[in-house]
Nucleic acid binder design. Sequence first.
DNA 1: TCCATTGATCAAAAATCCTGATCTAAACAA
DNA 2: TTGTTTAGATCAGGATTTTTGATCAATGGA
Lengths: 300, 300
Amino acid sequence: MDPTLLQLEALDAIARCGSFGAAAAELNRVPSALSYLIKNLELEAGLSLFDRTHRRATLTPTGRRLLEQARLVLKERDGLTALASELRSGWEPELRVVVDGALPLAPVIRAIRAFAEPEVPTFLRLDVEYQEGVLHRFEQGAELALVLGFEGGGGEEGLHCTPLGELVLLLVAASDHPIASSKREDLDQHNHVELLVRDSAPAFEVDRKPSFMGNRNVMFLSDFQTKKTALLGGAGYGWMPAHLIADSLATGALVHLEQEVNRWTYFPQLVRRPDQPLGRAAQLFIANLCLPFEALVATE
Amino acid sequence: MDPTLLQLEALDAIARCGSFGAAAAELNRVPSALSYLIKNLELEAGLSLFDRTHRRATLTPTGRRLLEQARLVLKERDGLTALASELRSGWEPELRVVVDGALPLAPVIRAIRAFAEPEVPTFLRLDVEYQEGVLHRFEQGAELALVLGFEGGGGEEGLHCTPLGELVLLLVAASDHPIASSKREDLDQHNHVELLVRDSAPAFEVDRKPSFMGNRNVMFLSDFQTKKTALLGGAGYGWMPAHLIADSLATGALVHLEQEVNRWTYFPQLVRRPDQPLGRAAQLFIANLCLPFEALVATE
DNA sequence: TCCATTGATCAAAAATCCTGATCTAAACAA
DNA sequence: TTGTTTAGATCAGGATTTTTGATCAATGGA
């Protein structure tokens, strides 16, 4: 059995209009055309769908049941034409975005909410990555990246960058950790453990990592929330985005260390490729992102 | 845009097989046929689905997205052919069953579980009715009825009946109700309230109800569970299926009244029309119903 | 009873789809 | 570089399917 969409449309129209004639008028056909389609449908299905003993052809129970399923087919077909129309009107089929896990997630979450609307046909893929993993994911084909900030603050490699405010990282430790009461320049004197968020690039070899920490003791963590927990537990010291530890600094659970370099300001950027124009989904994402982002970075 | 199932099948096959040629072989066509179908699909959709700059045609992101939706259409189409095959092999499109609310529901619930299996295409409709409502619903077209028992115990009106064991109704009241301590023949002397389950036939006129209770005080309830609650609350006395009040009799919350007629045995019947043969769904229902029914009626 | 309406049937016309030959261009090996 | 292989596009003719308009039978209402 191999039903045609035409046959299913005829079945649906006849059931809705109540007669072959009315359905034929709706489909801009002649009644005999529908007669032909339905006859073949019944023949191929091996089922009798209409009861012709009375003048008006009425659906049999079998016909009604099959109609239910036929309407599911037609519904998906309509979904296909709608999708084609949307793609034609500028929506990307898929939008991939990378976010540096050090950035505040709240504005990103607000932006992805817009993709739940039914009129947005684009599939959204959002990856939260760390360190080199952010650019690695971007190079693999993501259309947008929210990065912590390039060295020097400006763009490089011919990428199009839009500044998104500023993000402060602070060197902190638990208030009951010995390092909290030590003075400047003490960091190199002791073998305190430095907490670091692990690079999320898959093929990244830990040996090739710039050995700025020398042979000090280090603890690698998967993300900043875990790192915060470890810091609060007194595992060691480390850099944290200010917005993630404002509460702990206020309660005094964490303290800002008094070191030569204990504060670093980054300038987060929205990065995209300059050659290819933004699709409607990318524009939607940016429109829902930028405005609140500035505000949230400032206050958090 | 009006895509054809052929076009969608071609799109799906090319994506699965990796090339026009392999897909053509799978569909028993010639490559140029698929070329023609896809060209028209792209033309009507106004989208480019394949990238032909390289030798092997590869799906564009747009093509991949549209393919996702196309596969949904084909999936529903397959569901349609499967449904047709099932209906052809003897499954009814719909099965309607009525159950008298006085009967134990457990065996019925076991029977309807079988209809959750995906290989059962039949839509099941089950109505729990009371009194005249049971036969009323059966006459409206239900294929099967589980009735409390006809007067005289046998079948009537040329219906096919199968006995399902026996069901005892007991005349009971709350143990702290005045009637509980009264002796036989007292029922007519006092104006105690009789609790009754209301007839569920929609057009049933309460005036035409056989006035066997004369002008006594009555309280109509929607079902036996509600009636049990009202009995436990001491609202009055009434008949209850034994299986529903076994627990309350055991704890002593309800007591079996000592009256001339305080016990009635019914013989529940599975009723169906003798002229039309049973479909597979009806057979499935009965097969899952009968065996446990006898056991449950006896023990409950 | 007649008459309007519904739908089936049929042959011819129209549209669609398939085929097989031919052509272009990319990938690949020498 | 050159020639070979392979994937797919294109095109005209043929096969198939669908549509049409006329005709016919049957039902239900006036």
